[in-house]
Design a protein around this nucleic acid. Structure first.
Lengths: 141, 141
DNA sequence: ATAATTCCTATTGACAATATAGGAATTAGG
DNA sequence: CCTAATTCCTATATTGTCAATAGGAATTAT
């Protein structure tokens, strides 16, 4: 029951960005240095975050990334879903076809996994990046 | 964010056992056959479940395993904790020493993981094997 | 033009989860 | 007592996914 480093890294990097409250692009190298996340790995993560619309990129000198200003209410759930390949605790929650045992209709444990999955997503969806960034600023000051 | 097969297998096997409501030992081979879990793998899982007191074993011919009759209220949380090596979504929830980043005190994302972990465990601890066994019996009839 | 940056994919490396194997210990029943 | 059935326990192999590295293409400010 582990959160992948992709999810952790994404959130730590974005929390840092949110705390800056900048409206000009932030250099990814600066973020990597400040957070200790491997640069090239962070590039991959930001690539996904941009494709999913959470980040906006600007290339070339003095380029960088910016939290999408059109989406002021990005949640942790948005972020984790963008970078994590599988957010469900068991594959059979994705669809009937993913059930590996052929007893989909009489499976009682799946209902339990569903409750867990719902509980997790409800926490994830209830926290915004903004609030994390604010808390981070608060703690550093 | 995956539940390991150890956790799933353990729960499926025990649900099956609970549904039988037997007070004589159940052969592990029967359970493996009925659930499709690899026999030798299930042996390992049951080994842990016995060590943690959830199961009672009887060796020799007509031996087998029995849900510990002294513990009528075993929860899913008990089971998962017995077989899963790591139930926490990030290691830094275990103790300060497990923090990998050296910013334990100002880490804001850890508080989020904590909320998720608590939400998960609260579901796990709120469901008994008995209730799963009953639901299973119900569905099969 | 050049240098700084993001973009994108491929590949490698490391590690934990999964599964298999084999024999030791125990015990019921003849 | 002997045998066969079972759990007990540890070691090892296998697999798969995650994590990380690498390298060059595309873009753009100066």
């Amino acid at each position: 029951m582990k959160i992948s480093t992709k999810g952790r890294y994404a959130l730590e990097a974005l929390t840092y960005m949110a705390s800056l409250e900048k409206d000009t692009p932030v250099n990814i190298r600066e973020i990597a240095d400040q957070t200790g996340i491997p640069l090239k790995y962070l590039e991959q993560i930001f690539f996904r975050l941009r494709k999913s619309g959470i980040l906006v990129a600007k290339r070339g000198p003095s380029g960088g990334f910016l939290l999408n200003p059109a989406l002021p209410q990005i949640t942790v759930g948005d972020v984790v879903r963008a970078v994590e390949t599988d957010i469900k605790p068991v594959v059979c929650l994705k669809s009937r076809e993913h059930c590996e045992s052929g007893i989909y209709d009489t499976c009682v444990t799946r209902l339990l996994w569903k409750r867990i999955s719902d509980a997790v997503e409800s926490v994830l969806d209830g926290v915004t990046l903004q609030s994390l960034g604010d808390a981070y600023k608060e703690k550093k000051s």
